[in-house]
Amino acid sequence: MTNTKTDELQVNEKREAAGPAELTKPGPVFTPHVDIFETEKDIALSADMPGVSAENLDIDLRENTLTLTGDIAGENNNNEDRIYVEYKTGRYYRQFSLSGVIDQSKIDARLNDGVLRLLLPKVEKAVPRQISIKTG
C-alpha cells in the first residue's frame, strides 16, 4: 500500500468552543489547536492562534487552571464584499488543568507567526540530601 499523501497538509477545521466561555462580546469563539508536551522539568504548550497579536493575548494561570484568551484585532474589511468564505474568524478561548506544580515566576511565553509557545517549568523538587553521621 502506498501512502503518497503523508505530508500533504489538510485543513484542520476550526472548532467552535461550545463550553461556557464568557460571552460578553458577540461573535464566534474558537478552540485553538494545541500541542502539549511534558518532560521531567517542564510542560511545553503550543497553540495555533492566527490573527492574535501579543497585546490581545491573555494568559492566566490560577491554581492549576490555565486559561488562554485571544482576541483578534478588528478587521477593517467591512466594506468588502464576500465572494468566498471558507473559514470564520473570532476569538480564541481554551482552558487546561495542569498536573504538577508550576513555577509561576519562570513561565515563558512567546508568540510568533500566530503560534503561542508557552513553557511552564515545574517547581524543583527538594533534592534529597545525604546526611552524614559523625561518630566520636
Partner: peptide
C-alpha cells in the same frame, strides 16, 4: 470537508471596487 475540499489553507476571498483580497490562516 468544507468547500475547499479540505485543501490547506482555507481561504477567504473578498473584493471591493479596486481589489480582490485573499486571506488565509497559516499559523507557524
Amino acid at each position: 470537508k468544507s468547500m475547499g475540499a479540505g485543501v490547506f489553507p482555507a481561504v477567504n476571498l473578498t473584493e471591493d471596487q479596486g481589489c480582490y483580497y485573499v486571506r488565509a490562516e497559516i499559523p507557524g
